[in-house]
Amino acid sequence: MPELLKTGAFHAGVLALSFVMIYPLLWMLASSFKGPDEIWTNVSSLIPRRFTLQNYIEGWAGFGGVTFTTYFRNSLLVTIISTVASVFSSAVVAYGFARIRFAGRGFWFAVMLATMMLPVQVQIIPQYIVFSRLGWVNTYIPLILPHFFAAPFFVFMIVQFIRGIPRELDEAAEIDGCNRAGIFFRIILPLLKPALVTASIFAFYWSWDDFLTPLVYLNNPRLYTISLALRSFADPSSVTNWGGVFAMGTLALVPVSVLFVAFQKYLVEGISTTGLKG
């Protein structure tokens, strides 16, 4: 009986903490269905007194003649290209560090890890100067191009995963006539599925939620991503349609939520097996 009570208390505590963590999301979801006169007067209740979809209709209409269809399309374009580029380039670099012996490999690996300690804000000014002189400001190039040169966190994670793959597979492939590229594409890459899916989920999240980079480089409203559009939708100099903001914020969470639910198994597997050397 004491063991049953202990288990029940544990689960009750976990449920309570879970509710506290997701309460802001539940509140935003509930507020997206409330009328403008109810959002700030019925704050404590998650159940609208009058259910309405008007917030979604007005929110989707956007501002300045640009609808949220454009913003979602822009975000998907930038996020998908950035995710594929970041994960694939990181896998290539990780394969080099994990399987190819070259002079200074340990030193360059340490340098790569050291770059993870640099705050993004430190890199903004020199990057902006370079992209500005190249004439790439107000384009998607500054948002996408850096992802083609690997992400240190993903490289480190994938290196640890590759080290758990037996080298005998590489040797068997070499006997069959495979070169380095053949080993990577035919042997290593298929076995990296859990790590690649994990990296893809993180890359998608970070790119989709990125606010600072679009804020710095984009000034044309038709090029705005979701995060920047949501901020611009809330106008401090006039009356803000908070219902529309909450409605579009709720829709902005749908892609990342679906991605997490669909690939949760691979996410857990990729994290749990990274760093285990076989």
Rank of each mutant, 00 (worst) to 15 (best):
G13H: 05
L15C: 13
A16Y: 04
S18G: 12
V20W: 11
M21P: 02
P24Q: 07
P36A: 04
P36N: 02
P36R: 01
T41I: 09
N42T: 10
R50N: 13
I57D: 04
G62C: 04
Y71C: 06
F72G: 07
S75N: 07
I81P: 09
T83C: 13
T83R: 09
F88E: 02
A91W: 11
G96P: 00
G96M: 09
A98M: 07
R101P: 01
W108N: 03
A110F: 08
V120A: 15
Q121H: 07
V122L: 15
Q127M: 12
V130P: 04
S132M: 15
R133Q: 14
W136V: 02
Y140I: 13
P146Q: 08
P152K: 01
V155H: 05
F156Y: 14
M157W: 00
F161S: 06
G164M: 13
A172T: 02
A173P: 07
C178G: 03
C178V: 09
A181F: 14
F185C: 03
R186K: 14
L191A: 13
V197K: 08
T198L: 15
A203D: 11
T213A: 13
L223T: 03
S227R: 08
A229I: 09
D235P: 03
S238W: 01
V239P: 00
V245W: 11
F246E: 07
V258L: 14
L259R: 11
L259M: 15
F263G: 14
Q264N: 11
G275T: 13
G275H: 10
G278M: 06
G278K: 15
